[in-house]
């Protein structure tokens, strides 16, 4: 959208509002009797988004029903990881939400890359792993152990072989 802030109906008087400094209550400039919460635009430096398919130019099919396209448009740089690299992705392709290469900085072929989350039609969310992650996130020590086990010094292939018994479907 490229706007500096956006009005939001709701949230006034809640503790959500109290815990954030990127939302304030401001008058409606067109109606002095009204106030709304206004939320500061969120513009991440980098967004990493997982796609069903992407082509080498950067056109991609992102998750449907999510906020992925909006996040991509709001971010300064966008890295798309994709289950599959194909010759051409167009706005008419089905199964996901199209994003034009104009918004994408880089594409990475990463089959299974949504893990421990899932990709509808390809693989399910790995609930067991998510439980492990939540447990690990309860303390710094446990989280460090998690990182040592799965992330630090590990390649993507090593990670995938650790977390997946079955081969990933849809490998392009």
């Amino acid at each position: 959208m490229g706007v500096p802030y956006i009005p939001v109906r709701g949230l006034a008087g809640t503790d959500v509002f109290k815990r954030r400094d990127d939302m304030i209550i401001a008058p409606n400039p067109f109606d002095p009797t009204e106030e709304t919460v206004v939320a500061l635009a969120q513009n991440p430096d980098v967004a990493i988004l997982h796609a069903l398919r992407a082509d080498r130019d950067g056109n991609a099919l992102l998750r449907k029903h999510g906020e992925d396209v909006m996040i991509a448009q709001a971010s300064r740089r966008v890295i798309v990881t994709a289950e599959e690299i194909v010759d051409k992705v167009t706005a008419d392709d089905e199964g996901g939400e199209y994003i034009s290469a104009i918004n994408v900085t880089a594409v990475v072929h990463a089959p299974g890359g949504a893990h421990p989350s899932g990709v509808p039609g390809l693989y399910e969310m790995d609930e067991e792993h998510i439980r492990e992650y939540i447990k690990a996130s309860q303390s710094d020590e446990a989280f460090q152990a998690y990182l040592n086990r799965y992330v630090l010094g590990k390649s993507e292939a090593e990670y995938q072989s650790m977390v997946r018994a079955a081969p990933v479907l849809g490998d392009g």
Binding site: G10, A12, T14, E34, E35
Partner: peptide, 15 residues
């Protein structure tokens, strides 16, 4: 423990 929605809001908040 946490206010997710407030029962009462000032009149300027139209709802």
């Amino acid at each position: 423990d946490f206010i997710s929605g407030a029962g009462k809001t000032p009149p300027e908040i139209k709802r």
